[in-house]
């Protein structure tokens, strides 16, 4: 429990709002579906390895989209793959979040001008929450993107809808 561990000597009652409690639970254990496409996937693997540990934030890779909360789209999305990304996104149960990692999935990357088979940004098929720039982004940049996503979840409301799905 962290701050409150064994601090009190008698039984106590903790008062908080349901929103705070749910949001705290959601952001502390974001399970990601292993979706590495290209070079950024290697940096994502390096982030999960022991030097820049992803697991200490509660993020573990799951093989199936039905058991995960967040999809990190890392790498170039091509037209052939875009329909499958959409299908994977629709298979994830709510609440779900998307991190777009790397320049190629943000906006097409270095292939923006002459790539006839590259989708210029994954936000043309699925809604994105956090964009992490870089080509490829350093593991520290990906961790910063994850922290920004956690901040976004922290202030989410379960009753009011304040973000539009495109």
């Amino acid at each position: 429990m962290g701050l409150l561990d064994k601090e009190f000597s008698e039984n106590n009652i903790l008062i908080t709002t349901t929103e705070n409690l749910f949001n705290w639970a959601r952001l502390s254990s974001l399970w990601q579906v292993g979706f590495g496409l290209a070079c950024c996937a290697i940096e994502m693997m390096a982030t999960s390895a022991s030097h820049y540990d992803f697991d200490r934030f509660g993020v573990i890779p799951r093989p199936s989209p039905r058991q995960s909360d967040v999809i990190i789209v890392s790498g170039t999305v091509t037209l052939k793959m875009a329909l499958r990304v959409k299908r994977l996104y629709e298979q994830m149960p709510d609440p779900k979040y998307v991190i777009s990692m790397g320049s190629c999935s943000n906006c097409g990357g270095p292939y923006w001008e002459h790539g006839y088979h590259v989708l210029k940004g994954v936000d043309r098929v699925i809604p994105v929450d956090v964009y992490v720039p870089g080509c490829p982004p350093r593991p520290e940049a990906l961790l910063e993107g994850l922290l920004k996503l956690q901040e976004k979840i922290r202030y989410e409301s379960i009753t009011k809808k304040n973000n539009e799905i495109v």
Partner: peptide, 20 residues
């Protein structure tokens, strides 16, 4: 066939916009 020198890009493919 894309690598021909006179190839033109389509505007949409299955609902997705192809150019930037």
């Amino acid at each position: 066939h894309p690598l021909r020198k006179d190839y033109q890009n389509p505007e949409f493919y299955q609902g997705m916009k192809v150019p930037y």
